[in-house]
């Protein structure tokens, strides 16, 4: 049996910065896809999914802690880099498409032309040079953020707090109106 079972624990690298999405800011303009294409030889590795045909949601590799694609890859072509990203080594990939089949998010795709799997490498060169990934930089609505999970959660808490505050003031005005 050469298909490796999904039990080997993947080395959990340092705290990884990831690309996070704020769905209600996304317009579905596909600038992120175009930026990804420019960065990666005209093959994009992110997607825009239209939920109920109305709401756009940008989807990209999550670089899972125990990544099924990494565990399943029979050629050992998918591995975790020092920065924590799960990447495909193009020249080791034998093109069995198993990564595509086992990904719970359906993210890795396959280039019939280059004959290897394609997935997000979190713009390794750009990040090494101290820049943000191409999709994050290109987003005109700032719907994508490149941050560690704590930073992203802090931002989300603040956002929600602000909304609660807004709702609170609305309510107060409403109550005040009724009383008068």
């Amino acid at each position: 049996m050469l298909l490796r079972p999904l039990e080997r624990s993947s080395n959990e690298g340092p705290e990884l910065k990831r690309v996070y999405l704020v769905p209600n800011r996304c317009l579905g303009c596909e600038e992120c896809i175009e930026a990804c294409k420019r960065e990666h030889d005209w093959v994009a590795c992110n997607y825009i999914e239209w939920v109920n045909r109305i709401y756009p949601v940008q989807m990209v590799c999550n670089h899972c802690a125990e990544a099924p694609c990494e565990l399943i890859c029979p050629a050992g072509a998918i591995h975790r880099t020092e920065t924590g990203a799960v990447v495909v080594e193009d020249d080791k990939c034998i093109g069995c498409t198993l990564c595509n089949i086992v990904c719970p998010f359906g993210i890795p795709k396959f280039s019939e032309e280059d004959r290897h799997a394609i997935k997000c490498d979190q713009c390794a060169e750009r990040v090494a040079a101290g820049k943000e990934p191409a999709c994050v930089e290109a987003c005109p609505m700032k719907a994508l953020t490149f941050a560690e999970v704590e930073d992203y959660e802090a931002e989300r808490r603040e956002r929600t707090a602000r909304r609660i505050l807004e709702v609170g003031t609305c309510l107060r005005r409403f109550v005040a109106k009724k009383e008068s």
Partner: peptide, 9 residues
Amino acid sequence: PACRRQAIG
């Protein structure tokens, strides 16, 4: 995979 993306989206 496409339907998985839809569901997670």
